[in-house]
């Protein structure tokens, strides 16, 4: 096992229940600063539940120990974790009608930094990050995710990540629903956020995103567990062979 003392994020023996159903059945993960991990798995394997559960979704029951930059955050709420530098890019971001992207982000950035950000400085920073993501400045005044296309929502998720500057980011299916141009822009944003201090986990079904964002570690996730971990070559192997060849391993790892 990796020594998790300096890890930006680690979790040990995480189980997640949705109602009565155990969906995540014991996950250990250690992400070091500067590392990008990919968690790949078939639909329904529980990878989105893992991402949402780690962040603190109110409908999930989570057991296990979570640390963020060495601090035990197992008992913290989603907002406390977020202020300490944890971030989740949602697969399906919800709309908040009546709340503009700019006003929401200013509140969020102020909460993350622990101090009100002056409006001029904020505006300047926001417009610069939007330009990085090839976004029309009009987005700042639109209601958050309200009537956005799938691709627009994903860009706004990445915009939020760039503005909030997390220590550890979970990206849940950020590549889904993107055309190739949008995928390139979103990848550029992910690479920009991936500094030597930051750890990231990309949750994805396809290898596609990994052509643009190179992971250090690839985990295969099936039936609520990590069944295999390896280097980037594992992603290519999955692309070629699919997930079926790993089924027996998943079964063997079962209780």
């Amino acid at each position: 096992m990796t020594d998790s003392t300096n890890a930006v994020f680690s979790c040990a023996d995480v189980h997640i229940w949705v109602g009565e159903k155990e969906v995540v059945k014991g996950v250990d993960l250690t992400v070091m600063p500067g590392e990008i991990h990919a968690i790949m798995g078939p639909n329904g394997s529980g990878k989105s539940t893992l991402a949402n559960g780690l962040m603190g979704h109110p409908l999930y029951t989570v057991e296990g120990r979570l640390t963020l930059a060495g601090e035990d955050v197992s008992a913290l709420s989603a907002d406390e974790k977020a202020r300490k530098g944890m971030f989740l890019a949602f697969q399906y971001p919800v709309a908040i009608p009546g709340v503009t992207v700019a006003s929401f982000l200013r509140a969020a950035v102020s909460a993350r930094r622990g101090a009100e950000v002056p409006i001029r400085d904020f505006r300047k920073e926001l417009l610069a990050r939007m330009a990085d993501l090839d976004m029309d400045t009009a987005f700042a005044g639109r209601y958050l995710n309200d009537g956005f296309s799938g691709g627009e929502k994903k860009r706004v998720e990445i915009l939020q990540m760039l503005m909030l500057q997390p220590r550890f980011a979970l990206l849940d299916e950020t590549d889904s629903g993107l055309d190739i141009d949008a995928l390139k822009v979103v990848s550029k944003g992910i690479n920009a956020a991936s500094t030597p201090e930051v750890g990231m986990v990309l949750v994805t079904h396809y290898q596609r995103l990994l052509n643009y964002v190179r992971p250090h570690v690839v985990h295969v996730f099936m039936d609520g567990r990590i069944v295999r971990s390896g280097g980037p070559e594992l992603a290519l192997e999955l692309e070629e062979r699919g997930y079926d060849w790993l089924e027996p391993a998943a079964a063997a790892g079962g209780a």
Partner: peptide, 17 residues
């Protein structure tokens, strides 16, 4: 909407905010 609340909390906003 609990999903809206969770979304905003995941960005660092306390429940009340």
């Amino acid at each position: 909407d609990e999903e809206q609340v969770f979304y905003l909390k995941s960005r660092g906003l306390p429940h009340f905010q």
